[in-house]
Design a protein around this nucleic acid. Structure first.
Lengths: 137, 137
DNA sequence: CCTCAAAGCTCTAATGACTAGAGCTTTATT
DNA sequence: AATAAAGCTCTAGTCATTAGAGCTTTGAGG
């Protein structure tokens, strides 16, 4: 149905990355044409979309592998999938709050406007001296 | 003044990372003792703190190298340091807003609570089908 | 049928920012 | 003098790709 280039276009996953996913066992080895070219079915497209989507959400390959394994063993409960998603949500929340602190401090630093030489540049001084931070990190 | 272990404790930068920074030319090669051990002065401690702080803020090694170079060439203006900090601020802002979108979607996904088998697990379906997203990413 | 570009293939190596381990030497303490 | 802790160098591994070399296959035009 699709050659690798088409699959790449459809999903937005770059060609070497698709091959890498295959090597990692994240996607199944597709059927090959007589000329040894990978040929994907709709199923392969869907799985790759799944992976792309999960990667965009920031899940690690290992997380995704777990989800993929879950989805191919239908006797296992959905609970584990929930756990993975939930766990990742906590992770994202933590990351956001951390970044917000950084944003605050960077704002403070970037808005210092002196025009002196670097020897007394406040930005550099501010980066050099952690005590000048308003918050900790 | 400080051996590498002490420097590591003071700054929170791990020992192999300190040596890596040295190899990258990010910190100066320190004086060695007769027994070939690295010996740092307060100056070295300060530079490493600077680097640590900037890394914590998410600046890349290359950004930091630029700042380091700036700070050792006092004739250059502070403007460039501002530019780097400002540019990074924009980057952080973009990252935060991206993560917020992800948070929203993950919340939506993680709160789907079905107890069926994975074959119809909404989480997995939701990850597989990008069209189910409320927003794009 | 032939040619030629585009797209495919495999394999190796690079990226960034570390981190870990092997196998050794130096230092400090008992 | 012995031993443990901390240092050293060097190599290789991590994660998730990405890039490049050098080759083959495919499809379209002449």
């Amino acid at each position: 149905m699709y050659l690798i280039g088409e699959l790449s276009k459809q999903t937005g996953v770059k060609i070497p990355t698709i091959r890498y996913y295959e090597e990692m066992g994240l996607i199944e080895k597709p059927h090959r044409t007589s000329g040894n070219q990978r040929q994907y079915e709709r199923e392969g497209l869907e799985r790759l979309s799944f992976i792309k989507h999960a990667r965009d959400l920031g899940l690690s390959i290992e997380d995704i592998r777990e989800l993929v394994d879950l989805s191919s063993s239908p006797e296992k409960s959905c609970k584990q999938a929930h756990e993975i998603a939930h766990h990742h949500l906590q992770f994202i929340k933590a990351k956001i709050s951390k970044l917000r602190k950084l944003e605050k401090e960077l704002k403070r630093i970037a808005l210092l406007d002196d025009e002196g030489h670097v020897g007394k540049c406040k930005i550099i001084a501010s980066l050099a001296d952690h005590r000048l931070c308003k918050g900790e990190h």
